[in-house]
Amino acid sequence: MYILEVTRGKKMLLTGSILIFGFMALAVFAPFIAPYDPDDVKVEERLLPPGEHHLMGTDGFGRDIFSRVVFGTRYSLFLALVVVSINLLLGLMIGSIAGYFGGLIDELIMRIVDILLAFPNIILALCIVGVLGPSVQNLILALVALGWVGYTRVSRGLVLSIKEQGFIGAAKALGGSNMYIIMRHIIPNAFPPLLVLATLHVSHTILSIAALSFLGLGVQAPTPEWGAMLSEGKQFIFTHPHVMISPGLAITLSVLSFNLLGEGLRDVLDPRAREVLNV
């Protein structure tokens, strides 16, 4: 069992992976795990405290909060993963081109990156969603429009150091085209450190999505997204805090587990590190 071998003695990686597997399982098997329909409104059961029938109580519409948190995994995790994957691929491609070719292309791309990096993230996302109208697609668009720059910057730096290494020159002398060298030599070597960055970024994205949804600009009201649930619960924060505590804890835990995974991955992804582990 390769995975067990690698994770042995690595508590962060192990805890992070187990928690994320847990969240994945919740997302996949949500209909079997959730005891109630997450959208089932029962006015007579509204704002019940956590108890025997409702593990985490009910919200202002009498919906079961546990079921909503379970179904919320689907939205929060799925959206965050989609956003981060797009950012990663886009940043890797653009950054590789900038770093590999250098010169004018590099200057052009990096100045655009600098400009985008200068904006406060969440405010620019607010503007984009505000102008285009709140919807899931526009939420993804806003987060991608800002997210790719970080990956571009990092991958450009990685490419600059990779392209000076002998095997790039050797591949060129052996007859490899620029496209071949970027796809087969540069990107595979720049990818692992970026993957660590991406894993850490997933948690950041979960927070951004929750924040935008909380502000009413992301996933819309009846959908059981964690940020949107927080937003709906905020009117009861003093009288019935349990409505906000459960989705809040879900966000915290998912963010924590991705951070743990990212930190843990950093140590294992290098083949040299694998040698040290004796695998």
Binding site: Q165, G166, F167, G169, A170, A173, P188, N189, R272
Partner: peptide, 16 residues
């Protein structure tokens, strides 16, 4: 027809 051998053999091969 024209090939090169580099100084640092550790860097001359794709590590992956």
């Amino acid at each position: 027809k024209i090939q090169i051998i580099f100084q640092d053999p550790d860097m001359a091969f794709n590590p992956r």
